[in-house]
Design a protein around this nucleic acid. Structure first.
Lengths: 341, 341
DNA sequence: AGAATGCAGGAAAACCTTTTCCTAAAACAT
DNA sequence: ATGTTTTAGGAAAAGGTTTTCCTGCATTCT
């Protein structure tokens, strides 16, 4: 691999001149420019971005902390992030933390050591953990689809409560009165979406039957088990709101196995609108999140913070300032009416 | 952020000593060790990995070129890669090329500029393109699940032809004689798996009906269309081998829409065993690939090449040597018998 | 005791850039 | 023609490490 020195020698100019030609940072006579370009061409020179990073204090790399890349939802967000960063000439380093806090600690330090320019968090933490990260972080942080309120850490996602409210209201609008809920164990899936459900029930004067409320981790298998539990009561609900599509698919599975029909005996509505919901039979009615868009917006926001940061000197202060300025981007959700209600 | 100089001053030792304590590269007296550790602790010092990379010529970063991260198959390979690299203290940078050659060119250069230690390719190229990459690459390359034979570029995946052969033989074993094929447009999906199909048909003395052979890109929607085409003939096959699960799901969809039953009227067998195949009704019988394992093995192989490379000086030569040594890792596939045949 | 060996630890070079600072020549104004 | 400003381009510092080379001291051998 040739370096700038070799190009300088070959072109018969100084190192500074080569640098200036490469970056256009100062005018260089056409004559010398040509000599440099020729040398670059001939030797296939590519500036060493490591040396560059060292002096510029900028890696053009962002880190994405993701609970599990192989999960469709996260993979889609990642794809949105990548789309945006690619345009802005940033690379993305993935940190798969397997929903494991210790891994995340490790990765977090790793990323700071590697001096990434910014970090997008898809992995849910407690507010305290997040505040700790924020303290040691030397780089801007953005939460994507993790609806936690931490001062100075911007968030991009949807209105979780409102979306859940819409889902349940839709069921009620279709005449359902006995509505079950399968909910999860993190902020969005465990608290916010449940809150939307409760609110919708209350607003429509319906009472919540605790036998129809089951909490479980977010997976097809767990959704199946949760539904089994709901079907143990002598009566069963006429509709169930599942706070994720995976859960809904599992729950529907269980419903068939008990000899019941969807949507005739029990209607289902899911959440997220991942691919699965379109291939499952009957096709799952669900709340659509603009998943890829969330990724894109998160990346856009982060890059905005990074570049703004770079311009004005005082890092920390500006960082806070900017974050507080535009701290929550809420994208629109929608209801995809398909065949399960 | 403190640097090594500040630690040295604080501990009252030389820079060299700090470095030696951090890396254990040479013995240091307990006395000085303690002073260094204390300083490190107090100032929360983390060595700057950029400076490190610059001098060691090692970034501990590998690049993964992927056609589309949001695709379940690729996301799973990625997850396998990540699992392995995390253990070996490598980071992974993703390069989503959207099945677009120009993007890939761009990314390839970017990765060389960033001096990644190695590259895993999940994106299909022609043999010529690959040979070109190989020429300009300063870093080892590994193909994962892209069964191309290029001298010096190791491959890890399954026996595509054999697996397809098994799938079709299974159908034949179940008494099917008229077997359709929906195949794709790249090496694995377009050539190898088709080859396995033809071979199995021939070996069992069955003739191939060209009306039952349809080529299409790999997606649910395209699978639907392909099946539509097959069903246009007056007779229809009693079974169809789809070279990917997505295609199979689409094709089954079409079958229902035409008022036919799976598997009674037409049996289906897919390929890959991605999540979808377990949630679709009836559950899809398919060829299981150890997807995550492919990722893990590819990463393991790559890291092996990198480290071996590092040890012995002469880069290029060793690189070739090593690659030729163990150039094809073929993992075992298996048939997942479910409900569609 | 004197020479030889071993070893802890410091100084400085090296990695490859960008950018500041400087010089010399060209352009301009008087 | 002389003095002043602008400009192109070179030399060198800076960025944060690792490692080689060297020094000076303690230990071992004869």
């Amino acid at each position: 691999m040739p370096n700038i020195k070799m190009i300088a020698r070959k072109a018969g100019v100084s190192i500074s001149t080569v640098s200036r030609v490469m970056n256009g940072s100062k005018p260089v006579s056409p004559e010398l420019q040509k000599r440099v370009y020729d040398a670059v061409q001939q030797m296939n020179y590519k500036p060493n971005s490591i040396a560059r990073s060292l002096i510029l204090k900028k890696t053009n790399l962002i880190g994405v902390v993701v609970p599990d890349v192989s999960n469709s939802f996260h993979a889609q967000i990642l794809s949105g992030i990548e789309e945006c960063t690619a345009h802005a000439d940033y690379g993305v380093m993935i940190c798969n933390v397997y929903r494991n806090m210790k891994q995340q600690q490790r990765y977090f330090n790793l990323m700071l050591e590697r001096h990434v320019d910014g970090i997008i968090l898809l992995h849910e933490n407690t507010v305290d953990e997040l505040t700790d990260f924020q303290k040691i972080s030397t780089t801007p942080l953005v939460l994507a689809s993790v609806p936690l309120e931490v001062k100075g850490i911007p968030f991009v996602g949807i209105d979780e409560v409102g979306a859940a409210y819409d889902a349940v209201s839709f069921l009620i609008g279709k005449g359902h009165r006995e509505i079950g809920l399968i909910y999860g164990d993190c902020t969005a899936l465990g608290i916010l979406r449940k809150e939307g459900y409760i609110k919708a029930m209350n607003d429509h004067g319906l009472s919540v039957n605790d036998d129809f409320l089951v909490q479980c981790p977010c997976s097809v298998a767990q959704g199946y088990q949760a539904m089994e539990q709901i079907l143990q009561s002598e009566k069963h609900p006429t509709a169930v709101f599942c706070v994720s599509d995976e859960m809904a698919v599992g729950a529907m599975d269980c419903t068939y196995d008990k000899g019941l029909k969807v949507p005739e005996d029990i209607a289902f509505i899911g959440f997220d609108d991942i691919e699965i919901s379109q291939v499952v039979r009957p096709r799952l009615t669900t709340i659509h999140q603009p998943i890829k868009e969330i990724g894109r917006e998160a990346a856009k926001l982060l890059i905005g913070l990074i570049e703004q940061n770079g311009k004005t000197g005082r890092k920390q202060e500006n960082l806070r300032l900017a974050a507080e300025l535009e701290s929550r981007i809420i994208l629109k959700h929608s209801l995809m009416e398909r065949e399960t209600v």
